[in-house]
Amino acid sequence: MGFESYHPAINLFYFVSTIAAAILFKQPVFLLISYLSAFAYSVKRNGKRAVIFNLCLIPLIVIFAMYYSSYNHFGVTVMRQNFIGNNMTVESLLYGVTLGMIVATVFMWLSCVFSVFTADKVVYLFGRVSPKLSLFLSIILRTVPRLKAQAKKISTARRAVGRGVNQGNVFQRIVNAVCIFSMLLTWLLESFTTSSDSMRSRGYALKGRTAFSIYRFDNRDRSLVISLFACLTVALMGYLLGQTVIWYDPKIVMNPITPISFVFYMGFAVLCLLPLIMELWTEFRFKKTRCQL
């Protein structure tokens, strides 16, 4: 029902643009928009866990700003001198806060990325680049849990004849663990031989491989892509007009905020919040139709 049900290409487009914007747009208003939307959206997606994670990031921002300003001394507005006689400046402190905010925002966006992107979306996106690459990725995704299961099987079997990793003296335990590990490798090779037979027998070696996908590009995907692009264009116009930059060294300088600036702010905010708004709206509509039944 949420953003994850849209086409993976749109998911990718959205996250690449928001994360890039978070890094590039250092102007406080843009940064704040970025920060708040990332906060809100990660809470919407991950619930309580996200709240805890995001709140933990705040002290980190503060600590980072303190650390940064005590090692960098550019700027003209001196607050005070520290104990070795270096100047603590407002500029470097604020720049530290900005950097900390950027890192926190990116982390929060990434937590959204993990909840939206499942492994098969990644595999699909790679498949657009090269079908072989995506197949390779898919094989790895299958092998890892199999290896775990086999390791467990072997270790259980060995425990039942008194040769487990937690039986015998320390020396025996190490020997037992090494045995299991070496056999696991043999087993893996053996099972790859069969897999490769099965792949070849289904024509793996043929030229012109295509990649199957379970995703479709629907009208709702198109409309979302158009809106995202519109917002991104507005934000990029702000970028070209120098609305998104700020200098801290030697002195805080940024372009003046004019009424037209608010158009850029609006555009950027909508870009960042679109999935959240959309998810809330869909849930609201779903509830409403339920009530009417």
């Binding site: 098969d120 595999v123 898919s138 299958r142």
Partner: peptide, 12 residues
């Protein structure tokens, strides 16, 4: 049955 399966998803 296990060794023959190549990918991680049923549909794939």
């Amino acid at each position: 049955p296990d060794d023959q399966i190549v990918t991680d998803k049923v549909w794939h």
